[in-house]
């Protein structure tokens, strides 16, 4: 943990890196731009590479940033709700629920503007299912949580496979990429940025309440929190953030696990610092992961979910092992 006095400087550093990354990665890709070309493209959108930068790379980087920060926030919230640092929207099947509901909507030809609402519904159903079965203290809570989450996730995966197997071959590749978490065609609609900003403000207002809630529901009540109302609000926020992220980029895994974990190591567990740090770093993390995804086998593009999962799975196992050693 870094000293309290440095925390503010860290946030400023993260903000600069976050914003910088969105712009800088637009120079990198299958057509690599030199500094001169990039600057020219940035300042003049009608120049030779202007179209590439402004129409393709910047929107994609912004989408990556938004998705990363929303998943990181959602991860932080779910970890508080479950009092368990292993909670993550992907691992616990919340992303799966949102993905299934949207996919079902697509198959039945629901208008695109309604798909995020379906995603929200799917996310809410999963989150309530997992939490109602897995909350509580007891010696089995960690195991019960993971089991419930994993089973819920595989339930959604089975339903998704069912839809896929009934879908025509020509749409399969697109669907599969989306399910793995893909930013190739992603753009951020204005409302999604609105959800992101509104949630961040709301969560920051609740940050000290989250600190108290992380100490247990009874402790929170004794310290003056009307926990029932607070819990519902947090459930709703976590689902909304996950659903929005899924509507943009499909189910990108493990961001909600990796990012809060790394930030906890650096800034500690005070949500007044952790939430903004995780939000900024989540965005940065996914921008970099997506850049890796589109350059590592260039011109072949990988779904970004492959990269995050390859980073997330070892970390998850490490955490699980640490929890075992600690007896949590």
């Amino acid at each position: 943990m870094i000293p309290t006095t440095l925390r503010r400087s860290l946030l400023i550093l993260l903000l600069i890196m976050s914003v910088g990354s969105v712009f800088l990665v637009s120079a990198i890709g299958s057509v690599s731009l030199g500094w001169g070309e990039w600057l020219k493209a940035m300042t003049d959108s009608s120049s030779q590479h202007g179209e590439l930068v402004w129409r393709l790379r910047l929107p994609r980087a912004l989408a990556a940033w938004a998705v990363g920060s929303m998943l990181a926030m959602s991860g932080c919230l779910m970890q508080v709700l479950l009092r368990n640092p292993l909670a993550d929207p992907y691992v616990l099947g919340v992303s799966g629920g949102a993905a299934f509901a949207s996919l079902l909507g697509m198959v039945f030809g629901v208008a695109v503007i309604y798909l995020p609402w379906l995603a929200l519904l799917g996310a809410l159903v999963s989150i309530l299912l997992v939490f109602s079965l897995a909350r509580g203290t007891g010696p089995w809570s960690g195991t019960r949580l993971l089991l419930t989450g994993v089973v819920t996730a595989s339930g959604w995966a089975a339903l998704i496979s069912l839809i896929l197997s009934l879908s025509p071959d020509n749409s399969l590749r697109g669907m599969l990429f989306w399910l793995m978490g893909d930013l190739s065609y992603a753009t951020v609609p204005g409302w999604a940025l609105g959800v992101l900003a509104a949630s961040l403000i709301l969560i920051m207002g609740l940050a000290r309440s989250l600190n108290v809630l992380a100490m247990g529901e009874t402790t929170a009540r004794l310290l003056g929190e009307p926990t029932r109302r607070l819990l519902w609000l947090v459930y709703l926020l976590a689902s909304m953030l996950t659903a929005t992220a899924v509507s943009i980029a499909g189910s990108v895994g493990f961001v909600g696990l990796i990012v809060p974990h790394l930030m906890r190591l650096v800034v500690g567990s005070d949500h007044r610092i952790l939430i903004p740090a995780a939000t900024l770093f989540g965005g940065l993390f996914l921008v970099l992961s997506d850049t890796l995804a589109r350059t590592v086998l260039s011109p072949q593009q990988l779904p970004v979910g492959v990269i995050t999962a390859l980073l997330g799975v070892p970390l998850f196992l490490l955490l699980l092992n640490r929890a075992r050693l600690k007896g949590v």
Binding site: M1, G205, R208, L223, G224, G268, S269, D270, V328
Partner: peptide
């Protein structure tokens, strides 16, 4: 039972929670 890594001082300060407004 404390689950998350917070400092002793931060944890003692949670006692001020009911006395302080949201922001």
């Amino acid at each position: 039972v404390y689950v998350f890594d917070a400092s002793v001082l931060e944890t003692a300060l949670t006692g001020r929670h009911p006395h302080l407004g949201h922001w």
